[in-house]
Each structure stands twice: as C-alpha cells, then as structure tokens.
C-alpha cells in the first residue's frame, strides 16, 4: 500500500513536471527521458561485464532505420519505431559474431571500430543514408487522442508524455529481465564466468542475448529521438555522445538499476539547466571532464553508493559497513 502511494505520487510529479518549465526546458526534458532509456539499456549490457563504445551508434541504427522505413516504405510511424528497435537488435546479433570473440579492452576497442564503420558508412553513402547531412524531414509521430488528452506532437509536453509512457514501460521490462533467471545468469556471466560455464551456461549465447536486448532498447530510444527531432545525421551519434553516456553510467554507478538513471538525470540537470543558465557554454566540456575525473577519483562507486549509504544507515545503523559490491 505504501509503495503504491509512493508510486502514485511519483507519477503525479512526473505528469506535473513539464508545466513548471520553460519551452526549451521542456524540450530538454524530452531528451532526458529518451536518454534515461538509452543509459538503462547500456547498463543491461554492462551486467555481463562488457563496456561497449558502440552503443550510441546502435541507437543511431534505430533512428536511421525507423526514419528510412517511414520515408522509403511508408510505414506507419509507431510501427516503424518498433521495426527500428528490431533492426538495431538484429544488427547487434550480427555484430556479436565478430565482437564476442573479444573481451574487456579488446571488446571496447572492437565495438568502437564497428560503430565507427557504421557511422562512416552513413557518411559515405548518400543513397539511402543522406551522407554528411543525414536524413531530414522525418515524419513526426501522428497526433492522436486518448479521450481525456489530445496528443499534439508539436508540443514538447505531448511528446514528453508519449515518450515517458514508452520509457516507463521499457524500464519495467528491463527491470523484469534483470530480476528474471536470465538476468541472474547475466550477473553470473560477468562475475563467475568459469563456474557458470561449468554449470552448463552458454556464455556466448547469454552475452549475445544481453547485447541484442540492450541494442533493441537503444534502437527504440534512437527512433523516439529521430521522430521527435525530425533529422538524423552521422555526427549526432559520434564518440562524443558516447562519452556522455559513459559518464552518466560511471558517475551514477552501475551496480544498481537506478544508478545510471541517477547519473543521467543529475548530470543533465547540471549540464543543461545550471551551466546553460549561467552562460558557461564554452566551459561545459571542461566542467563535464572535471566532474568525470573527480567522481572516478573520489566516488568510484558512483552516486548510487551515496544513496545506498543513506538508506543503509536508516535500516542497520552501521554506516561504516563496506558496500558489498
């Protein structure tokens, strides 16, 4: 009952949130919601112990393919978004054959190379990818009505509700996956790979599964972004964006489900609202870089470790107990 009330209040706050913000802040909110999905899907991949540098490009695959399906084949937008996600997941399965011959550092570099190749292909081939300028004039999500609320997708608020509902549903699915036997096996693949293998777990299959699921959700995030912005181009999915995703995950921490989300929200608010309002536009990467360094030096377990400490103090009153990570 208590949890249900908290959930209800939280939901009400999320619904009320955009009404106190300016137009540009509402737009940032839409991106924030999409990025939450992106970074959470990234975490699913890190569960198996692999850190990819190609995740943002996979997101781009979702955006590009969804855009092309609507433009070239005339697919209805919500359907094409799903198809975009499926395309990203299928591509991940394909990429897993070369990439999962590698682990650790090699996987990191390999995923970067694979991502860059995809990105350069978008850049090089004007048909059908539009070259450097990418694809513009992507069909927006068609307006619709659900009785009590009229979705008008010129308004960021409407898109926020639409994307927010999808993202919440996706987060719930990702959460269920993590808590399922499959999710527990992902943990085992990371921390006890030899034992897992000896117990008959097909490591390769589970790593591929995690990669495909994570990529599918990243692709959906990309499609949501593409149909909102109306354009996609190779540069919006380059390594700098990937660095931001990596920072969110690292600053938030990846031991818990909420860690990366926390990192994403805190840094986005800091970045977009605080720094932009203060007019520190040029110094933003500098401050971002400094935050990254400081958090890895002084908060190696991320913001989530602060939350864990605070909640544990309440329950066990033993603050000096080490986090069992």
């Amino acid at each position: 009952m208590r949890n249900f009330l908290i959930l209800l209040v939280g939901l009400a706050a999320l619904i009320a949130l955009p009404h106190g913000l300016s137009f540009s802040q509402q737009e940032i909110l839409v991106f924030l919601v999409i990025n939450v999905l992106l970074v959470t899907s990234y975490r699913l991949l890190t569960l198996t112990g692999e850190w990819s540098l190609g995740h943002v490009v996979i997101m781009g695959v979702g955006a590009y393919s969804s855009a092309l399906y609507t433009k070239e084949l005339g697919v209805y937008v919500p359907v094409s978004m799903l198809l975009g996600a499926v395309t990203a997941a299928l591509l991940a399965v394909l990429l897993s054959f070369p990439l999962f011959r590698m682990k650790g550092f090699y996987f990191l570099i390999g995923s970067f190379a694979a991502g860059e190749i995809i990105r350069l292909i978008w850049k090089r081939f004007r048909e059908p990818f539009g070259g450097v300028r990418g694809i513009s004039g992507i069909d927006p999500m068609p307006d619709f009505s659900v009785g009590f609320y009229q979705f008008d997708f010129f308004e960021p608020v409407s898109y926020y509700y639409f994307a927010g509902a999808i993202v919440i549903a996706c987060l719930w699915i990702l959460w269920r996956i993590e808590k399922s036997p499959v999710g527990l096996t992902f943990h085992a693949v990371h921390w006890q790979d030899k034992l897992a293998q000896a117990s008959g777990v097909n490591l390769r299959a589970y790593r591929t599964l995690a990669f495909a699921i994570a990529s599918g959700f990243a692709g959906l995030a990309g499609a949501l972004q593409g149909h909102y912005v109306g354009t996609v181009n190779p540069n919006s999915f380059d390594i700098e964006v990937m660095v931001f995703v990596l920072t969110w995950a690292i600053v938030g921490g990846t031991a818990t489900f909420y860690g990366p989300i926390l990192g994403c929200i805190v840094l986005t608010v800091l970045n977009e609202i605080v720094l932009r309002e203060m007019g520190l536009e040029q110094a933003r990467p500098l401050i971002y870089g400094a935050i990254m360094i400081l958090s890895i030096l002084f908060l190696p377990n991320g913001l989530e470790s602060l939350v864990q400490k605070a909640t544990r103090r309440k329950t066990t009153a033993k603050p000096e107990e080490k986090a069992a990570t």
Binding site: L246, L286, G289, I291, M292
Partner: peptide, 14 residues
C-alpha cells in the same frame, strides 16, 4: 580510461 576521457575533454575545451 575514464579519467583520460575526462582529461581529453578538459584539454579540448581549454
């Protein structure tokens, strides 16, 4: 690795 990415961003914006 993460720290060097942070340093990269600092140098770039400097």
């Amino acid at each position: 690795l993460v720290a060097s990415i942070g340093f990269l961003m600092i140098l770039q914006s400097l």
